[in-house]
């Protein structure tokens, strides 16, 4: 068919440093974002995602500087998420050099933001990030504020609605799996991938390379996102891609 499944390393950035927590707590330092991004690019990452988890808005400028620096030397698509609330925020990130912006909490409180941003900037730049938690057999609910607040909204319906509103892609994180290293929630990924016409990125739970393969084969994901297995050099992006290719997944080598 020809389109490679994308491998996307994710950098959680706090006050200008890459960090990684387990289920959003217990944060460990994983380096300078520009250096990490450069290394991932050299290893063959298909895209890089930055999630700005900086709590205070005073430090918002920091992530913009990070994006500017990375965009000057890393020539693959860059996505930035965290704290995006207005169309102006989207524009600022794109001007800094991001190609796509991930909108999460703000989309829940103001779905029109997704519509307005995709209308004026184009769907290709708008990623809707969904944090979902299982609430029973084949049911998932979306959570906001880094997984702390329940919304009562069904994840599958929400994914459909965001597609209608002009999202170009969905970044789907399983809150149950995030940081656990036991693999993606492939049932969740598959349910969403089947429900929408736009690409779905699976996220949350990767602990080994087989999990990446399963995300594509069992989950039907168009792209797989992982953080800690790459940060702490457990595996390189190149190793991940070679393994996936051996398992019959089409990747860019």
């Amino acid at each position: 068919m020809g389109l490679a499944k994308r491998i996307i390393p994710c950098l959680d950035v706090n006050n200008g440093r890459v960090v990684k927590g387990v289920q959003f707590v217990d944060i460990r330092d994983a380096g300078d974002p520009v250096e990490v991004a450069r290394r991932y690019n050299e290893e063959g990452a298909d895209e890089i995602t930055f999630l700005d988890i900086t709590a205070s808005s005073d430090n918002r400028e920091t992530i913009i500087q990070v994006v500017e620096q990375v965009a000057s030397e890393v020539f693959i698509p860059l996505t930035v998420g965290g704290g995006i609330r207005t169309v102006d925020d989207v524009r600022r990130m794109l001007l800094a050099g991001a190609d796509k912006v991930a909108i999460n909490t703000a989309a829940v409180f103001n779905p029109e933001l997704v519509k307005a941003a995709s209308d004026s900037i184009g769907s290709q730049a708008i990623v809707v990030a969904i944090d979902a938690k299982s609430t029973g057999e084949g049911k998932w609910e979306i959570f906001t504020h880094g997984g702390r607040k329940s919304t009562g909204i069904d994840a599958i319906e929400w994914a459909r609605k965001m597609t209608d509103y002009g999202a170009g892609e969905i970044l789907l994180t399983s809150m149950d799996r995030d940081g656990t290293k036991i693999g993606f929630d492939n049932e969740l990924t598959h349910a969403v991938a089947q429900a929408v016409t736009i690409p779905v990125i699976a996220s949350g739970g990767v602990g080994n390379l087989q999990h990446l393969v399963d995300g594509v084969k069992k989950g039907g994901a168009d792209a797989v996102l992982a953080a800690s297995i790459f940060h702490f050099a457990e595996y390189s992006i190149g190793e991940a891609k070679r393994f996936m290719a051996e398992q019959g997944v089409e990747v860019r080598l």
Partner: peptide
Amino acid sequence: NGLPLKIPHMGWS
């Protein structure tokens, strides 16, 4: 993968 091709065509071809 049994699902229709996604649109936009997004990624490395």
